[in-house]
Design a binder for these strands. Structure first.
Lengths: 248, 248
DNA sequence: GTTTATTTGTTCGTATGTATT
DNA sequence: AAATACATACGAACAAATAAA
């Protein structure tokens, strides 16, 4: 173990400082930031380093740039599901100052699984698949039910109780998680879900299907999540294209 | 306005070539790309240029990188609402090989507008606001109803017929659009929407509220869109954080 | 209306650090 | 321990968009 901890990379710490100034109100929304050149002088680093720092903040949807004009602080800053990537539930709970809780409802071997899911997981009929059903609550109010399907090899040796904690942490000891594709749609609650989520039948739900992959594009798990629509929304920021590729 | 074609920037054309190879199947999903060094040799440019090209493809969710390992082609490539930023409807239509169509239902001055919306648009009671209601169809099937609220100054001199085309194009002649915040939720269809969208009352809908801003963080328009849930889903890709800033 | 200054965008070259195999 | 590959950082230069003189 070497203790070069603080290293912090210049551009990350510059980004943090700029972000701090925005939060402090030193750089106000709708105000132009100092130019890259000025910032590089102030922070005593190269302009490219400033650019990298600003790129970070653009990725975080805090800043927008315009060629020939300058960099601007973006209006507001919302909590976005998915902004920091996967695993947003517990985070979001923290951000709203709520307690979060995960309960395992069932965990069992599945004999017959939907063909579409099997195909997407790149499994054949001979493979054994497990189904994990969990209920996640905010402030003890059930918010979402998730059904997760994963191949035997990722849950080998694990039992029901192990899944009360972060699923990703468990799986990442076996394989590295890289990204996931998700699809959001709206449906009506059925009896099964109505009971689990404690809402009346006929209420709308947000249904989120997602497939999670490892770095080498191997599908790891298929997740079907049902969110109470009256308590949960997905937030998002779209930035007007920089016209890189094609026209629109 | 001249239409500058590609080739001008090295890293963009490199990115396009790499993307082409992925589409052609030369670089297969789950396969590692050549190293940045090898690519820079092949394309006869600096490694930084390759990195910028790859950064572009990462932003497009086509590639994922892992420090010390390499760059990998991401599995699949889905059409994402919002991938190219705002104004996805017509694009998405094209991608699915469908015809799209926009009809103006109404366009009129509003006297009393919801306080929340007025606040978000940073307008006072004395300001005049217009409401534009449009219906957008795919293959002549109504898909979404959008209610758009904007200040008088952006629609000055325009009449109902002008809005059958792209709203953004119209507005961008007056002010430059930079980004928008959106929020997705699920609701049940009411009678008004049921009729306009031609679906039974009680069906679920995707409700998308969005605020669009100019570069200087001035809110331009407030958009409330209702999407038929049985025909429309939002797709998204979440990438596992690179642990840049804080911990999570 | 043309020129000039400012500001971001792109690209090269070079060097060193860090993670993985 | 060594080779490979990505990450960070510096300096320098010119291009292109924008706004001001």
């Amino acid at each position: 173990m070497k203790e070069k901890k603080n290293t912090e990379t210049v551009y990350v710490s510059v980004a943090q400082e700029i972000e701090r100034r925005i939060k402090e109100g030193i750089y106000v929304s709708s105000q132009k930031l100092p130019s890259e050149y000025d910032l590089s002088t102030e922070f005593e680093c190269s302009r490219l380093t400033i650019r990298k720092a600003i790129d970070l903040l653009i990725k975080k949807n805090i800043i927008v740039k315009k060629r020939g004009k300058g960099s601007y602080v973006m209006s507001q800053q919302k909590i976005q599901s998915g902004r920091d990537g996967l695993q947003g539930f517990t985070e979001a709970a923290k951000a709203y100052g709520k307690t979060s809780d995960t309960k395992v409802i069932s965990f069992e071997k599945i004999k017959q699984l939907d063909d579409k899911i099997m195909t997407q997981l790149e499994l054949s009929e001979s493979d054994t698949v497990y189904e994990l059903v969990r209920c996640r609550s905010l402030d003890n109010e059930p918010m979402t039910i998730e059904k997760i399907y994963l191949s035997e090899k990722y849950v080998d040796g694990l039992s029901k109780e192990d899944f009360n904690q972060s699923l990703f942490k468990l799986i990442e000891s076996k394989v590295e998680i890289a990204y996931s594709h998700q699809e959001i749609e709206a449906i009506l609650v059925n009896e099964e879900m109505a009971e689990l989520l404690n809402v009346p039948v006929g209420d709308p739900l947000l249904l989120v299907n997602s497939i999670t992959f490892a770095i080498n594009a191997t599908p790891i798990l298929y997740d079907i999540s049902y969110y109470r629509a009256d308590r949960y929304t997905f937030k998002n920021t779209l930035v007007r294209g920089n016209n890189e590729g094609e026209d629109r």
